[in-house]
């Protein structure tokens, strides 16, 4: 018990109601305009290795009703697990396919997108939303995005990502309406890549 007490519990949002609302509007804006990063100005001081914008997404969206899958590095952090348990109360699941949300701290070692919940033909919404932490988001990136939310096309990239990541994203789009939706988070920005977005590498 003493070991647990030694880990300081970081606070959540300064203003629970208003910061949740602001964060959500940022997330909604990001999802509605794929590949277009949105700044989150009220992100909490999240515990290592969680980045503040990822923390904001978790505090905004997770609770008792959302099974969460944690990537290896996130799972190993007692401070992070306690933080999520205290502020969100979300149950943790072992299998990525069973998760409503997934938090990936290191995108280079994450499971393939196909390992997460894909939804069903009748209920495609019952799929995993994967929050991927990255160092940087690029709007002049190698991926050329098209689809709902994008006027003509939108360039996008994030680093670091594994070599075959964009192939996976393309495959994810091809199974539409099934598939996962991605939220990329840095320290203070989020960008989204829903399953509806098609892409080519330029």
């Amino acid at each position: 018990m003493t070991a647990i007490k030694d880990i300081a519990l970081k606070p959540g949002f300064d203003d629970l109601v208003m910061d949740s609302q602001r964060s959500f509007r940022a997330l909604l804006g990001a999802m509605a305009r794929p590949g277009n990063p949105v700044t989150l100005d009220c992100a909490p001081d999240a515990p290592e290795p969680m980045l503040p914008a990822a923390g904001a997404a978790c505090l905004t969206l997770l609770d008792l009703d959302t099974p969460l899958w944690l990537g290896a590095q996130a799972r190993e952090s007692e401070a992070l697990r306690r933080y999520l348990a205290f502020h969100c109360g979300c149950p943790l699941v072992e299998q990525p396919a069973e998760a409503a949300f997934a938090l990936v701290v290191d995108p280079l070692t994450m499971p393939p997108l196909s390992a997460f919940g894909q939804g069903t033909a009748e209920y495609p919404d019952r799929s995993t939303t994967v929050i991927i932490q990255v160092r940087a988001l690029h709007v002049e990136g190698q991926a050329l995005l098209r689809g709902p939310g994008i006027a003509n096309s939108q360039r996008f990239d994030a680093t670091p990502l594994s070599l075959d990541f964009w192939d996976q994203v393309r495959a994810n789009h091809e199974t539409f309406p099934l598939g996962v939706d991605l939220l990329f988070a840095t320290a203070d920005r989020v960008a989204a890549l829903p399953r509806s977005t098609s892409l080519e590498i330029v």
Binding site: F24, M31, L61, T129, D181, R195, S196
Partner: peptide, 18 residues
Amino acid sequence: EQTKRMIRRALLKAVAIP
């Protein structure tokens, strides 16, 4: 707030699956 979170999650899925 719990209800808002539930609706917000549904909204994100709705936007992702037009």
